[in-house]
Design a protein around this nucleic acid. Sequence first.
DNA 1: TGAAAAATCTGTAATAATTACAAATTTGCA
DNA 2: TGCAAATTTGTAATTATTACAGATTTTTCA
Lengths: 137, 137
Amino acid sequence: MSKSAERLKEYGIKPSVQRVAIMDYLLNHKTHPTVEMIHQDLSEDMATLSKTTVYNTLKLFAEAGAILALNIDENTTRYDGDTSHHAHFRCVCCGDIYDMTPSNHDWDKIGFENGEGFKITEEELYLKGLCPKCNKK
Amino acid sequence: MSKSAERLKEYGIKPSVQRVAIMDYLLNHKTHPTVEMIHQDLSEDMATLSKTTVYNTLKLFAEAGAILALNIDENTTRYDGDTSHHAHFRCVCCGDIYDMTPSNHDWDKIGFENGEGFKITEEELYLKGLCPKCNKK
DNA sequence: TGAAAAATCTGTAATAATTACAAATTTGCA
DNA sequence: TGCAAATTTGTAATTATTACAGATTTTTCA
């Protein structure tokens, strides 16, 4: 079975053709794509793929914890097949999103002064600025 | 001059009646309100206030760095008059947003393994989970 | 002071992302 | 094979946000 199909099963999701294709896309494109990009690219091989299916599927995946839904972009959601603990950087010039690895591995153990009683289940660190390419100009 | 008007001048923004009212609202409501909430509340005293003005003004403030625009909520932007360095928590149950103060004050000095060449100008830490109230239930 | 110019505000219409929903298709299984 | 359940599809509705042009307010300066 494909890696993508296995991944879906791990998270209790039945692997339909469309679901496997979308998960496959996410595992092979580290670009943090939008619904639009995924739909457009996959449509080349799956002409009948509906945008609604892409929306529904990504929501399903994200709610199951199989992928990450990122709100680092102001107007649209970006998706990430890599669910390991890492931060994200968005270049305010070109819009590209990069994975960032904090060198201080204690960042995920940060406590909060007023954190008593809170149950934290998700943590996202968003960085913005200029990427190396845009920074040179 | 009011504290709000002074604040605007600090950031090079001309203090009109509407702008002062909106900044005032943000400085006095720590609820991280949406455009909708701000407009609705201020409309009680300023019947003619347009929602477009609220949108434009908040964008102006945020771009000048006078306030923060938060994307912690999936479908709408929330605003924060407190620009000091702190994190945000959103309760997935009731939707309320809380300020969080990392007890490890080094969190803003985190380096990134693959950070060479990047110029980081903004940093947002978003936490999600259950607030003390919802956690009890 | 008082007109002309500039800045700001307002209301409506347009846009774009996302969701609702019902019909069509596919899948799993007796 | 044939039926029921799950999934997908396409269109219509919803919601947040922006575009834009006209109205209003503020500023400039003779």
